[in-house]
Amino acid sequence: MPGGGPEMDDYMETLKDEEDALWENVECNRHMLSRYINPAKLTPYLRQCKVIDEQDEDEVLNAPMLPSKINRAGRLLDILHTKGQRGYVVFLESLEFYYPELYKLVTGKEPTRRFSTIVVEEGHEGLTHFLMNEVIKLQQQMKAKDLQRCELLARLRQLEDEKKQMTLTRVELLTFQERYYKMKEERDSYNDELVKVKDDNYNLAMRYAQLSEEKNMAVMRSRDLQLEIDQLKHRLNKMEEECKLERNQSLKLKNDIENRPKKEQVLELERENEMLKTKNQELQSIIQAGKRSLPDSDKAILDILEHDRKEALEDRQELVNRIYNLQEEARQAEELRDKYLEEKEDLELKCSTLGKDCEMYKHRMNTVMLQLEEVERERDQAFHSRDEAQTQYSQCLIEKDKYRKQIRELEEKNDEMRIEMVRREACIVNLESKLRRLSKDSNNLDQSLPRNLPVTIISQDFGDASPRTNGQEADDSSTSEESPEDSKYFLPYHPPQRRMNLKGIQLQRAKS
């Protein structure tokens, strides 16, 4: 015994090295194993092979420090690593049964499904019991997946119906949107047309105001020219009257000059006056001389005659003075006559000038009245044309509004008919989907599995289990394997941990 101590140590070291070499393959693929292994699927088989106990299973599945599946799978690998070579062998058998691809990844061999460990530990009855539990578990999982698949199909059909409904609603909204954009385009076109009409109206108003201003300026210029013409006519008439007055005065002077006595007659009258003065002096001298030589009687007679002569001279002087006064009065009367005649001529000139001015103003008033009548006639014609244009424009607008209203009513009726057609199509689609759903539900009910399987069917299934373990590994792997896509769409199922009653199965096998 003492001599065998070193050999035992060498043997233990060799086993430990082999164990480390075995687990080295697992550690190399630890990331892939932790990512894809579900500990809840492996722990029943590991407990059946007595590699882990209930406490280890509870620690792996329910520990609060292991929230994710990767953490739980890593903890399970750590626990199996502590179990040595047996933990490695049982772990590979569980991978061979549940995850053939991972088994091939770790060992590089094809899975054979021999279950040597569980046969050694529990015997064939334990293997049968384990396989029966796994089959029931798989059936329950398949039923749950079928239910989930039916629910998802129903949800899918519902979503398809909602999608069709949303599509129809979208078509309806597109119809309304198209109608909205069309009405918006019509409104924009009408606004552009309105702005264009306003611009045209403004341009016409500006043109009309400009023409009116030009016409008023032309009328004012015409009036100024007419006033200048009238003033020139007035000056012409005044000059004609002055010329006529000057002509009359010149004719009067000419007549006075023609009626003036001649120079010879004046000289002859002056000679006669001198001769008479000479004779008068001679007679006076004779009379003076006679007075001195005459007697007293003759002197008395001469005195009487002288007195008579003096009286006659006085009378004559009075007559001469009277004649002079009369001549002066006649001259003054002639001057007054000439003055009055001049005033008369001036008044006649003024009267004729005023008459011509009156005629001029009368003509001017007639011209202004004619212009006013023409302006009123043009204004009435413009008003009439404007009223006709406004009436025609309003009539066109009324007809346009009428046609637009008819078009809008027809478009609304068309839209309502399209919407009604879309709604009826939606109703038809809904009815078809309901009919299809009812038909599929009836087919699913016919094809669904019963909840409680008979014992004979279970025994028959387990009677055929042994050949399947040898020759149909691919079928078992397809039913027991969970793909990543299934984990996305289906909830994980945790079967209840219970042991099955095998009395009925044993009785059935005894009868057979």
Rank of each mutant, 00 (worst) to 15 (best):
Q139S: 14
I70K: 02
N29L: 01
E122L: 04
E101I: 07
A144N: 08
G108V: 08
V26W: 07
M132N: 10
D10K: 11
C49H: 15
E27Q: 06
N133R: 14
S116A: 07
G123T: 15
E18A: 12
P6L: 14
T43N: 00
R114S: 14
K109R: 13
L42V: 06
R114V: 15
L77T: 02
M132V: 07
F97L: 06
E122I: 04
D56V: 02
K41L: 04
M32P: 04
D17Y: 11
E27S: 05
H124E: 15
N62F: 14
K50Y: 07
V120E: 05
I37E: 01
E96F: 02
V90N: 15
K50D: 06
Y45K: 02
Y103I: 00
V119H: 15
D78I: 06
D9V: 11
L102E: 09
N29K: 09
D53E: 02
Y36E: 01
P67D: 03
P39A: 08
E24K: 09
A73I: 03
E125G: 11
R30L: 03
P111E: 08
L127Q: 07
L95I: 03
G5T: 12
V119M: 15
I79Y: 02
L127C: 07
E7C: 12
D146C: 11
T82I: 08
T14H: 14
Y11F: 11
L80C: 05
T14Y: 11
P6D: 13
P44G: 05
G123L: 15
N29G: 04
R75F: 03
F130E: 08
D56W: 03
M8L: 13
L15S: 11
A73K: 01
F91T: 06
G4W: 11
S34Y: 01
P64Y: 08
K83C: 05
L92R: 05
I52S: 03
E125F: 15
V51Q: 01
E54I: 14
N29C: 04
L76S: 04
I79W: 02
P44N: 01
I136F: 07
F91A: 04
L22Y: 11
V51K: 04
K50L: 08
H129M: 11
R35L: 04
L66A: 00
G4P: 12
C28M: 09
Q141W: 10
S34I: 05
V60M: 04
E18I: 11
I52R: 02
N133P: 12
G5L: 13
C49A: 15
T107P: 03
F97S: 11
K69S: 04
F97H: 15
R113Q: 15
F91K: 09
P39H: 03
D10Q: 13
K83G: 04
L92F: 07
Y98N: 15
Y88V: 09
E110K: 08
L80E: 03
L22T: 14
N71T: 09
F91S: 03
A63E: 00
L42Y: 00
K83I: 04
H81K: 08
E24V: 11
L80W: 03
M12R: 11
H124Q: 12
N62P: 00
C28G: 07
D9R: 11
N133W: 10
E18W: 11
L80Y: 04
M65R: 04
D10I: 10
E7W: 11
W23V: 08
G126M: 15
E13P: 12
Q55S: 05
R75K: 06
L76Y: 02
P64L: 08
E121G: 13
A144S: 12
D10W: 10
A40H: 09
W23S: 07
L127H: 05
K109E: 06
N71V: 10
M8Q: 14
S94E: 03
C49S: 15
T112L: 14
M65I: 05
A40P: 04
N62M: 05
L46C: 04
I136A: 07
S116E: 11
R47I: 03
R86A: 14
S68P: 00
I70R: 04
S68H: 02
I136Q: 05
V135L: 06
D53P: 02
M132E: 04
D17Q: 12
D146Y: 09
T128F: 07
F130Q: 06
K41A: 02
N71D: 00
D53L: 01
L77N: 01
V26G: 06
P39N: 02
P39C: 09
P6F: 12
Y45L: 09
I52K: 02
G84K: 06
G84L: 04
D17F: 10
K83Y: 05
L77R: 01
D53V: 01
D56Q: 00
G5F: 10
P111M: 00
L95S: 00
D20C: 12
L138P: 05
R30N: 04
D58Y: 07
A73C: 06
G108W: 05
F115H: 15
P64K: 00
D9P: 14
Q141E: 10
Q55R: 02
P6N: 13
N71H: 06
E101F: 07
N133C: 14
V90I: 15
E19R: 11
Y45P: 01
R114K: 08
E19G: 13
E7Y: 13
V106L: 05
G123P: 15
T14Q: 12
D17V: 12
A21M: 09
E57I: 02
K137E: 09
E54S: 05
M65V: 01
S68I: 03
Y88L: 07
G4A: 12
P44C: 03
D146P: 07
H129W: 15
P111N: 03
G87N: 03
P6I: 14
R72S: 00
P64F: 06
D20L: 09
D146N: 13
E13T: 13
C49D: 05
I79K: 02
V60I: 04
E27L: 04
I118S: 08
R30K: 01
V51L: 05
G108S: 02
P64Q: 06
I37D: 00
G5I: 10
I136D: 07
L22H: 06
D78V: 02
E121C: 08
M132L: 08
R47D: 03
K16C: 09
K83M: 01
H81I: 07
W23I: 07
D53K: 04
C28R: 14
N71K: 03
E101D: 05
M132D: 04
Q141T: 10
Y98F: 11
Q48T: 06
L22F: 12
M132Q: 05
Y11N: 11
R86P: 08
G84T: 02
L105E: 07
T128L: 15
G84Q: 05
L46E: 03
Y103D: 03
L95E: 04
I37C: 04
E7V: 14
G74A: 14
G4R: 13
M142E: 07
K145G: 09
N133V: 08
D53A: 05
I136P: 07
T14W: 11
M142Q: 11
E122S: 06
V89R: 06
S94G: 13
T82P: 05
